[in-house]
């Protein structure tokens, strides 16, 4: 443990210069092997630093380059998977527990939300509804298109992630995202000891770094372990389904596992702003026959009024 932290601080101090890159890479990959062998007692997050896939020790590719970068594994994703989310607008009552659980588990500061709930009404004649908006992890992601350095990237398993060790903070991705799904570390982050202890991976996005972008990560590390994302697992209404498109199944917090294709077909699933051509990996089920009071109705939830003051 002590060794690890020391090494991280060493890297953080920017002492690894390009001159010593080649030698440094060699020694670093050895160091990683040593660590992985004695990592048993450490928190789960450390395991990914050792680059194991499903318990297999795959150390073929150590973190590359002079500066530290996301491991290949975090950049490529879980092989054979295509993560997908379905949000049932007929079941969402706008309680915001998904967003709260997400923020808590990702240590999200108060000035932002990865999963934001909007109060929508498409026209004066149609009923209002709640729209929970995570990152859509688009298959044609406008953010990844414009990133000048490949800090935001799309993985083979469909997840769009951000490497905050490479991000230069130009915020082009934020301007390019039509859904305002991204946030920025405007000030120096106040990382909790727990966040620091886990160590960084784009799969969970913390500890944060000043001057870098971040967003919903589909809980990439949870999916790897077969656990639902925090939002999906928390939703008291079971409104957020998550699953693998290849398996043609999605599961919600109630433990309902349903056939994705059938669900989308039977419930007339749609993707938000399909006309923009970004091909989101998040589907919605229309708010027909709602099982909750709509926004503005008696007994309906209200948005957190203090948001306006802290969020911009």
């Amino acid at each position: 443990m002590y060794m690890t932290i020391q090494r991280r601080q060493f890297l953080k101090a920017g002492m690894v210069v390009a001159g010593g890159a080649a030698a440094g890479m060699l020694t670093r990959s050895h160091a990683a092997t040593d660590e992985s062998t004695k990592s048993s007692g450490r928190p789960a997050g450390e395991a990914t630093l050792a680059l194991t896939a499903e318990g297999d020790l795959v150390l073929a590719s150590a973190p590359s380059g002079a500066s530290s970068h996301a491991s290949d594994e975090a950049r490529r994703g879980v092989p054979g998977k295509k993560w997908v989310m379905v949000i049932d607008l007929a079941a969402c009552d706008g309680c915001g527990k998904c967003s709260a659980a997400c923020s808590k588990s990702h240590f999200v500061p108060a000035d932002r939300e990865y999963l934001r709930i909007f109060k929508m009404q498409d026209s004066a004649d149609t009923a209002p509804y709640w729209l929970p908006r995570p990152c859509f992890h688009c298959d044609n992601p406008p953010c990844a298109r414009v990133c000048p350095v490949g800090a935001t990237f799309k993985r083979d398993d469909g997840i769009v992630l951000i490497d905050n060790e490479r991000c230069i903070g130009c915020r082009f991705c934020m301007a390019a995202c039509p859904f305002t799904a991204r946030s920025f570390n405007w000030s120096r982050p106040d990382n909790s000891p727990a966040a620091e202890a886990k160590g960084y991976s784009p799969e969970w996005g913390y500890p944060r770094r000043v001057g870098t972008a971040e967003k919903c990560d589909f809980c990439a590390d949870m999916a790897r372990e077969g656990k639902l994302p925090h939002c999906s697992g928390t939703c008291p209404m079971g409104a957020i389904y998550f699953g693998d498109e290849n398996e043609d199944a999605v599961t919600n917090s109630k433990g309902d596992t349903v056939q994705l294709s059938k669900l989308l077909r039977d419930r007339a699933g749609f993707r938000y702003m399909e006309d923009l051509g970004t091909q989101p990996r998040v589907h919605y089920l229309p708010p027909a026959d709602r099982r909750y009071p709509a926004p503005g109705e008696r007994g309906a939830n209200t948005l957190n009024a203090s948001k306006g003051a802290t969020q911009r």
Partner: peptide, 17 residues
């Protein structure tokens, strides 16, 4: 946000951007 990483534009530059 990170002018110290400006070199990444050369190291990791993407011509799609």
């Amino acid at each position: 946000g990170r002018p110290d990483r400006a070199l990444n534009l050369l190291l990791h530059g993407r011509f799609q951007s």
